[in-house]
Amino acid sequence: MSAADRPRVAVFRPPDERIDAAVELLESLGGEAVADPMLTVDPTGATPRTDADYVVFTSKTGVELAAGERADDGGPADRWEPGDATVCAIGEPTADALRARDYRVDRVPAEFSSAGLVEELEDEAGGARVEVARSDHGSAVLLTGLEDAGAYVHETVLYRLTRPDDAGDSAELAAEGRLDGALFTSSLTVRHFLAAADERGIRAEAIEGLADAVVGVIGDPTADTAADAGVAVDVVPEVADFEALAEAVVDAVDGAE
């Protein structure tokens, strides 16, 4: 256990209000946050199409860009409007972001994943135009699944996700056996963590260190990515949001004492 008996937990959210909120949450749970952003958001300036029957959002960031809130970061200044399209959100955080900006939310799959949305729409998507507005690292499952269901699918990349040059302090802590927990929110955060460890020549040591920590992930795809890379996953919360993830990991660390 880290100093003052507070669990030291790594968090990899983008270096904006999300990392600040994550640190505040972990500290409120009694943890010591290791803020090590593994993703930065690079808007493309693109906007979702307006001629689709269905429009799919997969993240809060995509909603912010569509709403014209990130013009200063390179995003579009004009607010996108859905018209008559059926607006779909993967995950309640994405749905909440839409509602907070006065967009309606017509569909949220019971399973908060690309596969869940495919299952939600496959019986009605035949012949429909589906616009998928997301990052450049979106799962192919969504596109191919809807195409197999007979939809005409178009993807608009609203932003690119890159790894900050200075990311990787958490990998060094893991390699030294000084991490008690880690919170991976996507497959890309797993891959970027391991890439940062690779650059430092400590990949094997970092994975070994994570085996002695409590590793939490959001969603089965992230769990699969971690497992395929040799990272043992301890916690996958039923609710796919960051707060549930943080609470579950801190509880698991406390229970392991």
Rank of each mutant, 00 (worst) to 15 (best):
L179F: 02
E119D: 14
A197S: 08
T162W: 01
I218L: 15
E205I: 13
H137A: 10
A204R: 06
G145Q: 05
E208R: 10
D123A: 14
G116A: 06
E92S: 13
E131P: 00
P93S: 14
V231R: 08
P93E: 13
A133D: 00
A151C: 08
S187I: 09
D212N: 15
V215C: 09
V231I: 12
D165Q: 05
G201Y: 11
G150K: 09
S187T: 09
L117M: 15
L158M: 09
G209A: 14
A213L: 04
V105T: 11
E119P: 00
T94G: 14
V108K: 11
A213Y: 13
D224G: 09
T94K: 04
V87G: 00
L183W: 01
A227C: 05
L142N: 03
S114M: 08
T94E: 04
A115K: 10
V215P: 08
R163G: 01
A175M: 08
R134V: 03
V108P: 15
R99F: 01
A167K: 03
D198P: 05
E172I: 06
D136H: 13
A211K: 08
G150A: 03
F184A: 02
A182M: 05
A167I: 10
S113F: 02
R203H: 07
E120M: 07
T225Y: 14
L194F: 12
E155P: 05
T185W: 00
D166K: 05
L146T: 00
A149M: 09
C88H: 01
H137P: 00
L143F: 09
G150V: 14
G138R: 04
G201E: 11
L210K: 10
S170G: 02
A85C: 04
D148T: 14
A100Y: 06
E155L: 13
D96K: 02
D169P: 02
D123H: 03
A151D: 07
T222P: 15
A211I: 06
L117V: 07
V190Y: 03
A100L: 03
V105G: 04
A128W: 07
A95I: 10
L179P: 07
T222G: 03
R203T: 15
E131N: 05
D106I: 00
E131C: 01
R163N: 13
G168E: 03
V153S: 10
T222N: 12
V215M: 04
V214S: 08
H154N: 13
A223P: 09
A133Y: 03
V157I: 12
G181K: 02
E111H: 04
G216S: 06
L117H: 05
A213G: 15
R99D: 01
S135L: 07
A151H: 08
A95T: 04
D106Q: 03
H192V: 05
D148H: 10
L161H: 11
A229W: 15
I202K: 06
E199V: 06
Y159F: 14
A97Q: 13
S139E: 14
T225C: 07
V132Q: 00
A128N: 07
P221F: 00
L194G: 06
D106H: 03
R101M: 06
G91P: 08
V231W: 13
P221W: 02
E124W: 04
E155W: 05
L158T: 10
D198G: 10
G138M: 08
E111W: 02
S113H: 09
L183S: 10
E205A: 15
G181R: 02
A110E: 15
P109Y: 03
V132W: 00
E147M: 04
I218F: 06
H154L: 05
